[in-house]
Design a binder for these strands. Sequence first.
DNA 1: GGTGTTTTGGAGCGCTCGCTCTAGAATGCA
DNA 2: TGCATTCTAGAGCGAGCGCTCCAAAACACC
Lengths: 208, 208
Amino acid sequence: MARPREFDEAAAMKAAIRRFWAEGYEATSVRDLADDMGITCASLYNAFGDKRSLYRQALDHYVENGLGKRLRGYETLAPRKAIDAFFADSIARSLDDPARRGCMLVNAALDVAPHDPELRRAVSDVLGRIETFFRRSIAAGQKAGSITRSQAPKVLAQHLLGIHLGLRVLARVRPERRALEGAVRPALAALAPEQPRRRAASRSRMKE
Amino acid sequence: MARPREFDEAAAMKAAIRRFWAEGYEATSVRDLADDMGITCASLYNAFGDKRSLYRQALDHYVENGLGKRLRGYETLAPRKAIDAFFADSIARSLDDPARRGCMLVNAALDVAPHDPELRRAVSDVLGRIETFFRRSIAAGQKAGSITRSQAPKVLAQHLLGIHLGLRVLARVRPERRALEGAVRPALAALAPEQPRRRAASRSRMKE
DNA sequence: GGTGTTTTGGAGCGCTCGCTCTAGAATGCA
DNA sequence: TGCATTCTAGAGCGAGCGCTCCAAAACACC
């Protein structure tokens, strides 16, 4: 055929994600990207298209390797535990982030989404996936008795999504465990069923 | 003394706020700003300093004329009503925002705060003011019996601050009333006292 | 009116931006 | 070994960036 590509595309994409994630779209130059990716501008454009296209691919990879894997990992947990684990992981990620990069998806939501309909759609879809994860977990938890039935799953899911987004904003300004856990705790506490119903606990705990 | 300034500084500042608010710091050029402000670059630098300094002033004005006035307005309300009003206003502002500008403070939290310690401090201080507003309202509401005592004011305030930030992110991606109200409703519902205590209602309602 | 001081308009500084071009290097296939 | 094809390196395009400079203009004060 022809000369094969010399660089590792996956490694280059990782570097691009890292840079876009830390600096945002506007503040990252194509030269910065090429340097970090260990390739030249020509190779970058040849392999990934223009800057916007590379950003889109980087965001997709970020979502799939970060959020996607997380959500799949929670599938085996009991619904209430899955929600707890989601927020525990979000807090852990926020605290283990000395560069205060936050969540690339949330950054994208404020950085590029408002000015780019296609990327806004992409971000919105991912938010929808998170909301769906919450909604399903809540519905299952309500059925199992581990989550309050006082609100519809949809509404509670929107609430948890809101908390998650707020958490990720807070993390970029005040990455302190107390503040982050404080923001989340009341939301998780409010998921508890109105009456603990200790008699039914051992039964419902099976499905938790 | 000397030649007086020809342009209206307040109007120019308003224009600068509008532009920074809509586009963010990086994506706004000094020429764009000067055009919108109706002045030349020279006048801009003479009157407001460099771009970063202008941004800082714009953010301060935004906070004082937006959030500051709002918080002062809520002071006369009963604590629980003040919190409700705060979120009702936030939602109204988010929906009445065809350009999806969101909240300039939240935009700043993700746009400039992570890369600028001084601005991060400024943003953090304002978040602290919001949290303080919540904390005081909650403490007063707990005393008056209109807000649950199941959690400390500090924690509930952190929670509400998180919800507010999440709301403002959501608004830039999905500015739909249902989604925004859904995110807030469970948080407000969770503020309700555990037992309504109807007997004491007429008494506590005096201080609400 | 003259003087001193500040503002204004506009050109333009050096630099970086996103992106492209060209020449040559490196491969698979005949 | 040639040929076709794709890749890489690096210079460089036009445009825009943040910012500055300078001469002219507009005032307050003597």
